[in-house]
Design a protein around this nucleic acid. Structure first.
Lengths: 138, 138
DNA sequence: AGGATTCCCGACTGTTTTAGTCAAGTATGA
DNA sequence: TCATACTTGACTAAAACAGTCGGGAATCCT
């Protein structure tokens, strides 16, 4: 149960974008350098973030990325989902209330893992980019 | 961010042990069969669980494992820690309040990840084996 | 117009982790 | 003494992770 770099880097980069880019495009090279992240890796992440509508891009000289939504409306949970950071606590795919079908009896631990997943999602969903920029963490 | 089988299996097996083994030793083969888990893998896990004092073993015919502590006092978080399920949300090892030293400025996202870790740990620490056996999940 | 800058996109790869398996040994009860 | 069951370490195929690399396309500045 550990967080990968994809999720960490994506949030770091978006916080940087919200913090330093006041409406004007920020180049990835700048973000990557300031946050000490590999730029080619960031490109992959921003490709997805753009496709999902979190950021907008302008090409060419003086181009870069801008936030496409208000920082206060972007939840951390959304970011992680957008770039494909799993956040999975169970193995079974179905999100229904059914127990594990692998065993005959109802899986006693299933509620535990789904509960954990709910806790994590709730926490990450009630914190926005703006909260991070302004150091408003509970 | 996903839970591995080690953690899942360990909790499943201990719940099984608490649920079906009323003081008397349960053989690993029985637990493995009922929960549909690979037995050789379980052996590794129970080795650690025994060394950490969660279970006691009796060898030979009619042997097996018994819980060494009351189910109500065994927290899920303890189990995961005992078998080495990481539960890590940050990369840096230090648990102090310091920011990430890799970047010059204080890492804005650090509080987020440690906060997430706290959430997870609190949830898993307030649920005991007994809670699972009696389906007492919030 | 040309070159510098920047985003765009897919393919590829070394390393680490996961999720086990396998084999050999030891203790115990029937 | 034989079957059962725990004990322990070594080993491994496959997947995930964490990037790298190379080429292309759009845009701006001079």
């Amino acid at each position: 149960m550990k967080l990968g770099t994809k999720g960490r880097y994506a949030v770091m980069a978006l916080v940087d974008l919200a913090y330093y880019g006041q409406g004007k495009p920020l180049a990835l090279t700048e973000i990557a350098e300031r946050q000490a992240l590999p730029i080619s890796y960031l490109e992959q992440l921003f490709l997805k973030l753009r496709q999902k509508g979190f950021v907008a891009s302008t090409r060419g000289h003086l181009g870069g990325y801008t936030l496409a939504r208000e920082p206060g409306t972007i939840r951390i949970a959304e970011i992680l989902e957008a770039i494909g950071e799993p956040l999975k606590t169970t193995r079974c795919e179905n999100t229904s209330e059914m127990g594990c079908l692998g065993t005959k009896e109802k899986c006693l631990t299933h509620a535990l893992w789904t509960g954990l997943g709910v806790q994590m999602h709730q926490y990450l969903h009630r914190i926005s980019l703006a909260d991070l920029c302004e150091r408003r963490i509970t």
